[in-house]
């Protein structure tokens, strides 16, 4: 909570005074601040009901009072009266949206809308080049499994004995771990990021490394594999992979072919697929 905010009791007094003086807009603003700081302030909600702009608002505020204290007589009476009145006067009236913009999603100071997420598309050819590179690494290093993922935990490519590895989960964990250690680096005043991590086990070890700030390589190998070898192969791979991924981010598959797949049909088919695949039983 913001310590610079005037205390709740004081604000409440001010809000009530404004309501009593007939300044509804001012009262609404102050009382809303009170409820934002302390939503259990029964009397603030009650006064809000009094200065609300529409009957629907009044109803909501009164219901809120009753949610806090079901025995509040004023709210009970008010709501009863309101329901009998609205029953006659406003059948099916829509909910008017009060000015809650100060805490709903409408801030004004955004940069122009860019890409929603750092998304990218791999062409078949790019995916093959990456797969080849990982296959060669796996062969040369005798690694059990090699995974290329991005910083958000998205698995991009994988090679090796994959059956026993939950590679998607490994990607998510690796991304989380690198992100966490990078944050640690920052907190201890380290300017550069921690570039790699090694977890040594009794039978298997895991090596994590970031590739050009955007990507992560995860290598699972048996204990006994010389770590120097893994590092050397890793370095070569990084040099090879980075340009492919830069290319993929910049150009990739033509927008047209994606558009042809991801059209209105796709959304409809997805919806029916969701209905049939996810179990809604007992829901």
């Amino acid at each position: 909570m913001d310590p610079t905010e005037p205390n709740v009791a004081h604000l409440l007094k001010k809000g009530i005074a404004a309501a009593q003086a007939g300044d509804k807009a001012q009262a609404h603003e102050i009382l809303t601040r009170v409820t934002e700081q302390d939503p259990t302030q029964e009397s603030a909600w009650l006064w809000l009901a009094g200065v609300a702009e529409s009957t629907e608002d009044t109803k909501t505020y009164l219901q809120t009072v009753l949610a806090i204290n079901p025995h509040n007589r004023q709210a009970q009476k008010g709501l009863k009266w309101l329901l009998s009145k609205t029953g006659e006067q406003m059948p099916g009236a829509g909910l008017e949206i009060a000015d809650f913009s100060q805490f709903s999603a409408a801030p004004n100071d955004f940069m122009p809308a860019g890409e929603l997420t750092p998304s990218f598309v791999l062409t078949t050819e790019q995916a093959e080049r990456i797969d080849e590179c990982l296959a060669r690494m796996a062969y040369e290093s005798e690694a059990k499994c090699i995974i290329l993922a991005d910083m958000t935990g998205q698995l991009i490519s994988e090679r090796g004995q994959l059956e026993e590895m939950h590679t998607q989960v490994l990607s998510a964990l690796a991304a989380g771990e690198l992100a966490a250690t990078n944050e640690m680096a920052r907190l201890v005043g380290e300017k550069a990021r921690f570039k790699l991590m090694l977890h040594e086990g009794e039978r298997n070890s895991v090596y994590l490394s970031d590739v050009g700030e955007q990507l992560i390589l995860v290598i699972v190998f048996q204990v006994g594999t010389p770590i120097g070898l893994v590092r050397m192969i890793l370095k070569q791979a990084v040099d090879e992979l980075a340009p492919i991924l830069v290319e993929a981010r910049e150009a990739g598959v033509s927008r047209e072919s994606i558009n042809n797949t991801l059209d209105g049909d796709f959304a409809k088919l997805l919806e029916s697929e969701l209905d049939s695949s996810l179990e809604f039983g007992g829901d």
């Binding site: 929603l116 997420t117 998304s119 990218f120 598309v121 791999l122 062409t123 078949t124 995916a127 093959e128 797969d131 991005d150 998205q154 698995l155 991009i156 490519s157 598959v253 994606i258 991801l262």
Partner: peptide, 12 residues
């Protein structure tokens, strides 16, 4: 979003 056109996968 990540699309792998070789594997025909859409990841969200």
């Amino acid at each position: 979003m990540f699309i792998n056109w070789k594997l025909r996968e859409l990841n969200l």
